[in-house]
Design a protein around this nucleic acid. Sequence first.
RNA 1: AGCCGGUUAGCUCAGUCAGGCCAGAGCGCCAGUCUUACAAACUGGAUGUCGAAGGUUCAAAUCCUUCACCGGCUACCA
Length: 903
Amino acid sequence: MLPLSLMEIPKTYDPKQAEERHYARWEREGCFAPEINEDPNAPVYSIVIPPPNVTGSLHMGHALQHTIMDVLTRYHRMKGHRTLWLPGMDHAGISTQIMVERQLKKEGASRHDLGREKFVERVWRWKEQYGGQILKQMRREGASVDWSRERFTMDEHLSRAVREFFVRCYDEGLIYRGPGMISWCPKDQTALSDLEVDKESQAGKLYYLQYPSKGGERRVTVATTRPETMLGDTAVAVNPSDERYADLVGQTLLLPIVNREIPVVADDFVDPEFGTGAVKVTPAHDPADYAMGQRHNLPMVKVIDQNARMTAEAGAEFDGLDRYEARERVVQKFEELGLLEKVVDYEFAITKCGRCRTVIEPLVSTQWFLKQAELGRAPLELIREKHEPRFVPEAPYEKVYTDWLEKLYDWTLSRQLWWGHRIPAWYDEAGRVFVARTEEEARAKAGTDNLRQDPDVLDTWFSSALWPISTLGWPDEDSPDLKTFYPTSVLVTARDIIFLWVSRMMMTGMKFTGEKAFDDVFITGTIFDRAGQRMSKTKGNGVDPLDVFDKYGVDATRLVLASIGSTDTRWNDNQVESYRNFANKIWNAARFCLLNSEGAQVGRGFEGDSKTWALHDRWIVSRLNRTARDVGRAVEEYQFHEAVYALYHFFWDDFCDWYIELSKSEVTAPDSSPARDAARSRVLTVLEQALRLLHPFMPFITEELWQRLPGVGTDLLHSAYRQADVTPTVMLAAFPRADESLIDERAEAEMRSLIELISRVRNIRTEVMIRPNQRVDLLVETTDGQLLAFETKKQIQRLAGAENVWEKSREQWPRASAVAVLSGGRAVAVPLEGLIDFAQERARITREIEKSEKELQKLEAQLANPQFVERAPAEKVEELRQRAADIRQRTVALKQMLEALGE
RNA sequence: AGCCGGUUAGCUCAGUCAGGCCAGAGCGCCAGUCUUACAAACUGGAUGUCGAAGGUUCAAAUCCUUCACCGGCUACCA
């Protein structure tokens, strides 16, 4: 390989240039597909992406989740696992339908003008044209997903899975159709499950209304936030133990305005402490009242319709009024009747549609429901008994999940939409229902062709609940992918999705395969803006990941996101900037290595018995193996910030600041020699290993640099990929395995001493204001007759700016010297004659002495405490004694120095 | 209302589960430097009564109790 000139490698890393080049090649050459692994015995690692909305575009939360998933995927791939990360999207029923309806509206049409079939076609066209932005953006992130397995919840296969799920549950009686209290969105005109609505605290009023008894001899006051619903009241309830109302139970009241006779019932639900202790009961328009209505067999009077307008049953005066207009009218009427006791300010929770924020109207309506409680039993047992899946972090999510599974209620499945999986139920003319996988099957069951399919579609989450199995081939139970990749290794998602995805995926997975859907569940943190506010589109305070990529590069952004992991964090550009700088550091370190790579090759230079190597070589290999061990362990424990920390400090501090510096004179020797080439190879080899360690986190820069290293090729790939027909790539190189035998505590300790010595001398130079380019002489105390190695001396000269390094006993030092006492007790001195102002040096030493004495005092106080000496572990006591001795020795030395400098 | 989390340097966060390395990192700050890869760098430096008050312990950022502030989740208090 020809030597590279300075011109060929720019001084600054340009992320965009690298990012554009590598992703396309990885994808083209099939590096993301598990099939690239040709080891039949390879362990399997699989992740299915929690499907983002087809309408969605990338936000920080996604970028965070994707980074975590990609780090895990790339790490395990490099470990030689048969690795699959499966991408895809869900069809987002309501959002997508709204999106397309809005488009139609601009054209002056509605979906009803088009008709169902044409409308659905139109949605598909929309999807092809605008949908799935997020998948394109994932390429930018470097996400190593297997695009050949991309799935969409409306795909034919996944739709078949949905029908199968529905039919089986129906046959087992888990799915039923019937009336129930549901959350209705008057704007979107559909039923919603409780997970699609949000509770919001709101300032409102509490109205105290008086209901006279039938004979008029008494009035009962009830409190309500929704006076308009009184038109549908069919009872008043009190607590059975409430003596104030004991005589009223069983009596009849006359509902004002409508003049309906309603009973007073006793029910434990009523809290005597709240309001007046008497509650109006509107079974048709309130979930709690509905339940009470069931208990007491109360009639239901429907006074509000699906448009949130009053019905004829509310009375002619109110018929057709909006619910809020009706509220004012009712209150006004009560005032006129003299039955409005009072109105007080009151803060209460209001329920809104998760999509459009319209206030939900609770309604009784006929819908399809799933008895989740029965499906939830198996996952509940699993989490209670085996703590599976394993939640990371365990607290508080395992509990959140368990609590949820403990109180499952029926899930409203049907949606009054056109975009989605149509409910596989058909009705004959008599209204009898036939649930079947196909219309043909339904006809056979019904014995007639004259059937009409249920017009509703299923909740989008119904299909997402099947995602881990349906994307892998279920209901084909012998699907190879299902057999190979299920159960998946981990689900990575945000915490607000634990109920929507995690628990339901577990339910369906266990129901149909008997096995959990994933081994682990990693819950990411939430990213806030700088002010600590949740990022949201409406607030416009979101940080667009693509902007961050543009500004700092994808790799730097990924490093920040990986460090965030499961922690809630306020977004801060500084952090990205510092990792951008880190990327640049990597670039320039590699630049140095490459500019000095003639005659060198990756993988060479560390031959022979490690005991014969130079100290800094033993040290860097030890550090490298330690880092490999720490990073691997951290990734496997989902402690990504620890992995990033270890990588950052290994690369910058150990490799750049010390190893390269210590190797520099050899590496940059002007003439070719075996020693020079070996040194060059060693530096390259360490760099190459470091790039592998960094790759899961920083895929682009590592690939960009790895490709340029002399001597990289197929032989560096993990054995599972050596037969693959691909351009050698770091993403298929083996992730470095830590060799414990090369972790050399002694070398690390020796290097620590050397580093300390050099740092202390540098510190002295600054403190006594010696010019940076002024060479000094160094005196190093000889202890136990141990002399410094010739190499080490030369390194000290280079790195501490020393002209000469003399080893002499302390008595031989000139009196006027700046001295530092190192941890082991050994002292080092810089003779100052002619260099500096003695007064300054005296001041410096005095400060040092003060510091030492303060520390010593602390230690002595502790050691003087008999209880400490008695009860603390002996090693701990010994450790402190040793430290105290060191400090005493240091103080003595410093005092001698001070004396030597004269007063 | 119940449950849960957070509060550590000017900023963003580690460290707390398994108590003991004079409490850490990055950014920022101060001083100096173009020292043959890198000024997005190099060298050195300063910075915290670990939210408050009690308690347990030889020893507490870490364990216990109470409180304050911030945030979240759950809930059929109308």
